[in-house]
Structures are given as C-alpha cells and as structure tokens.
Nucleic acid binder design. Structure first.
Length: 485
RNA sequence: GACUCCAUCGUCUAAGGGUCAGGACACCGGGUUUUCAUCUCGGCAAUACGGGUUCAAUUCCCGUUGGAGUCACCA
C-alpha cells in the first residue's frame, strides 16, 4: 500500500516557518516513497479560523512550491478537505461511540470545571477532569452537555514513534477528553483521528508539541476500531534563546522571510537542514533532497533558528539560480525603494544580478546595492568620505579625460570597456588601481561595488560618461576654490 | 508542579563501541583581486556531569544536571 501523508494547518494565522517545515518533510516523504501528500484545513475552531488566513496559507505553500495532490482547490476522493464541511462524518462516529458506551454525555459546567481545576492545582495535582459524569448515564435529553471519551483508568498507552521509539503514557494521566463541545462542534483530537482514518493517512509527521496528543488519539483510534497511522514527532524549531519560536522572536512567518528578500528555494533548503542531514549536503533543491530523503536522517533534538545561516543559504541560491530568474525576482524589491522595476529590461536586471549576487545575500540587499544603476545622478547615495578622498581635482581631471576617450568607443560592452580603460592607463603610465577607485566613486557614490567595467557596461554609455564628467567638474570647481561645502 | 521529549564545536550537523571526533555557518589570520565581495589556504572551537556494561565508550544502560514541550468546551 502506498503511503499517504498530510499537512493539516489551522487557518488562525499566517503560515509559520515551523508549519512550512512540517509540510516540507511530509512532502519529501511522499515524493520519495511515491505516495500522496494531502492538505487538510483544520477549521473546527469557528471563532478563530478565517477564510482569509486559509487563503494566505494556500498562497504561501504554493509560493514555496509545496503543492498538494489532494485538498482544498484541487479536490480528491476523500474530501471535503475542510473540517468545517465534514460535520456529517463526525456525527456518525459520535453516535456509534456514545451508543457503544465508549463515550458519554457530560453535563458539568465550565464553572465547575474551573473550580475543579483550581482545587486540583492547590492540591498540587495535575489539572484534569474528575470523571463525575462518567457513569451518570446521561441520556440525549440531559440538557446542555459535552461528549467525553471514556478513557481506561488503568494500564498505559504506548505511542511507537518513528523517531523516538516507544513512548509510554499511563492512562491514569489521560483525561476523559472532550470529543464534542456543548455547542455540538467536534474538537481537534477527535476530528484529526476521524479524518486521518477516513483519508487513509498512513504516516503522521508533525511537531513535537503534539507528542502529548498522540496517546489521546491512539485511544480514540481504539474506540472507533481503526488502525492508527505511524506517528513521527519532529523536534521543534527554537529561537536563538532556546525557547519555542513565537511572535516575540520577530520574523516567524513565511511571509516575513519573503518580504525580507529570502527566496523560496533558500527557505526550503534551510528548513530541510534544520533537523535533517544527509552526509555533508548543504545546498540542495527540494528535488535533490527528495532523491535521497530518508526518515533516518531526521534528528531527535530541537534546532535553533539561525538567521545568519539562512541569509548565507539565500546568498548561495542567488548564485545557483539563473541570473534571469534572480533579476525578475528583483523587480518588486526595486519598486519598494522607489525604482520603477517594471520598466527595466530583463537582460539588464540579469546583468545586475551577476554583478551583485556575490556581494549581497538577500533580494532586499541586492536591490539596495543596485539602486545607483537606476536612479537619477543626483539621487545616487554618496558616501561623503569616499567623495572627499577620491574625487579630488586631480582625479576629476583624469576622469573627464577618460570620459573623452570612452566617448569614441564603438560599443559599450565589458570587454571593450576593459580594453579601452587599460589602454588609457598604459598611455598615461597609470596603474588601473589608480583610477578604478575614483571612477567607482564617481559612478556609484561608494568605494565598494562591482568591477569597474561591469558598472560602466550596465550603467550605459550616457549615464556613465555623464557621471565621469560630473566628477571632473567637481574636481575643477574644487581646484578653483569655487566649490562650496 | 505533573507528564513527556531532548543533550557532539557559539549555531546547524556527521560518525556511532576502537576515528587525528568530519563538514557547514559565524569568527580570526594568509593568498588572489581595480575596491568590496567572491574564491582559496589555514586557525579557533564540541562529545554536559557521575556511575555502570565492556579488552575498549562520544556511541549501550542507570542516575544527576540542564534545556524544551504539553497540561483548554485552541489546534
């Protein structure tokens, strides 16, 4: 039987990086084993779930390329894939459980439960239900009630985890958990079991935070007489301070990283390396990971989220991807800093990517570093210290002379520019280093940047000559003492 | 607090009874280079602690310590 795995997010917020990682590993396993990866929306909490968040989650998964073979918007033979639409399925199971005595109606009020919790806490006991209604035999007309699972009081429930081996929980530690709320809606632990059964899920890879839910779910599987899937609880992602990642740690959603200029290939690559390893493989695509993926490679201990390494991985991907691809992805980021990204020729953007990809790690940085190519001369951000040091009268004079020579060039390619500039240097007995820095400052306003010929070539003939001459003018003005400030 | 999980360089990790405990990020230094970066060479740096088992434990077992997760009519 071929394996079936699922990712089952709750649409109560943005797609979290932990969720993305869970989805990734499930998909990796499905692809590797030739199985099916399905998506199910866990929206039983009517108060917190929204269609907007659902849309966001689907969008982010697609952005990452983590597409599903069954689920919302694509369908499948075990649908619907939204729990809010599966009420009838759950109702049938509940009826059988209550009729069979595996579950019972409980009329305890929220107030009593709260009081009970307080008492048990004072008595230094584990919070939990005391089982008052377990044998009360409440019928359908008992008034407002919830439905609870009758959990055995003795013995233990063992979860044979794929990564941790057998984990045993005393049944006495497990509450008679609520299956159906007083408003008639089913709860998480119950619907998960019903759906995974119904959707023929064979492996459940999910975060460690669910390990404590596993025995409860095992008990439900037993009650409904279904075979449980294999469980694999993956170590969580921690923040640098060691605790579970949360909003207070800053960027935690996939969207945050997209906005920060991280590309999907890099995010996925980094996510895969968090808790999984295959020899010394560091930089790899999802497809490459699929080819060698194995559950054995998944570790047991939590990993800390390291933004620096993520940035490095992203930098590696900026070089691994075709320049044209990186160039296209750069457009919106240029737009953000006031450059009309849409109006720039694709070849030019590709050339920019080649010129700057080894000097930057994110698309945000790449856009910032590329700005001088696209803004008006007077909008170029200039480093005052660099200007003072390199745009001297003498250098200015040389630069305008150089402009004069370059003006006569037939073409404006890197090779021609290099030849011409080198020729100019030789003729004047200058080392290239002598004019490269002043020229760079004149053209980009900074003393660091791409190679001189790359800059000139991408900038174009007009702007290039203009900026070189402008440096000459500054130099001349300074020379006559006419320059102010 | 109870239950459960986890423990190799600062971080991600590899090896798993016999290794100089390997790689990557970060950091430090040399080289290349028109700047910066890249690239390249080198360096720093780890088996939490205590008991066992064994000829031999980083690896297996137990304990301690430390960290984490969960204890809802949330998922």
């Amino acid at each position: 039987m071929s394996i079936r795995v699922r990712f089952a997010p709750s649409p109560t917020g943005n797609l979290h990086i932990g969720g993305a990682r869970t989805a990734l590993f499930n998909r990796l396993l499905a692809k590797r084993e030739g199985g099916t990866f399905l998506l199910r929306i866990e929206d039983t909490d009517e108060g917190r779930s929204t269609p907007e968040y659902e849309a966001v989650i689907l969008r982010e998964l697609r952005w990452l390329g983590l597409t599903w073979q069954e689920g919302p918007e694509v369908g499948g033979e075990y649908g619907p894939y939204r729990q809010s639409e599966r009420g009838e399925v759950y109702a049938g199971y509940i009826r059988r459980l209550v009729d069979g005595g595996m579950a019972y109606r409980c009329t305890c009020t929220v107030e009593r439960l709260e009081e009970l919790g307080r008492q048990r806490e004072e008595a230094k006991l584990r919070r939990g239900y005391d089982g008052r209604c377990r044998d009360a035999g409440h019928g359908p007309d008992c008034g407002p009630h919830v439905i609870r699972l009758r959990v055995p009081q003795e013995g233990a429930t063992v979860v044979d985890d794929l990564f941790k081996g057998p984990v045993s929980f005393d049944n006495a530690e497990i509450d008679d958990l609520i299956l159906v709320r007083s408003d008639g809606t089913p709860t998480y632990n119950f619907v998960v079991v019903v759906d995974d059964t119904h959707m023929r899920v064979t492996h459940v890879l999910r975060g460690d935070e669910h390990l404590n839910n596993a025995p409860k779910q095992m008990l439900i599987y037993r009650a409904i007489g279904a075979e449980p899937p294999r469980f694999g609880h993956m170590p969580l992602i921690h923040a640098l301070d060691g605790s579970k990642m949360s909003k207070r740690h800053g960027a935690t959603s996939v969207a945050d990283y997209r906005e920060a200029g991280i590309m999907p290939e890099a995010l996925l690559n980094y996510l895969a390396r968090l808790g999984w390893a295959h020899g010394n493989m560091e930089i790899f695509s999802v497809e490459e990971a699929e080819a060698v993926f194995s559950l054995d490679g998944i570790g047991r201990s939590p990993a800390k989220w390291d933004p620096e390494k993520l940035a490095w991985v992203n930098g590696q991907w900026m070089r691994r991807l075709a320049p044209e691809v990186v160039g296209e992805r750069l457009r919106p980021f240029l737009g953000r800093i006031g450059v009309d990204g849409a109006g720039i020729a694709a070849e030019r953007l590709a050339a920019v990517a080649v010129a700057l990809r080894e000097r930057t790690q994110t698309l945000v940085e790449l856009a910032a570093a590329a700005a001088f190519f696209f803004v008006a001369d007077d909008q170029v951000k200039r480093d005052p210290e660099a200007v003072r040091a390199f745009l001297t009268p003498a250098n200015g004079a040389v630069l305008s002379e150089l402009a004069g020579v370059l003006e006569g060039l037939a073409g404006w390619g890197e090779a021609e520019l290099e030849q011409a500039v080198n020729g100019f240097c030789t003729a004047r007995g200058l080392k290239l280093g002598k004019i490269a820095q002043p020229a760079r400052v004149a053209l980009c306003g900074q003393k660091v940047g791409p190679g001189l010929f790359q800059i000139l070539s991408i900038l174009g003939r007009e702007a290039g000559l203009r900026r070189l001459r402008a440096a000459g003018a500054v130099g001349a003005a300074a020379g006559t003492g006419a320059a102010a400030g």
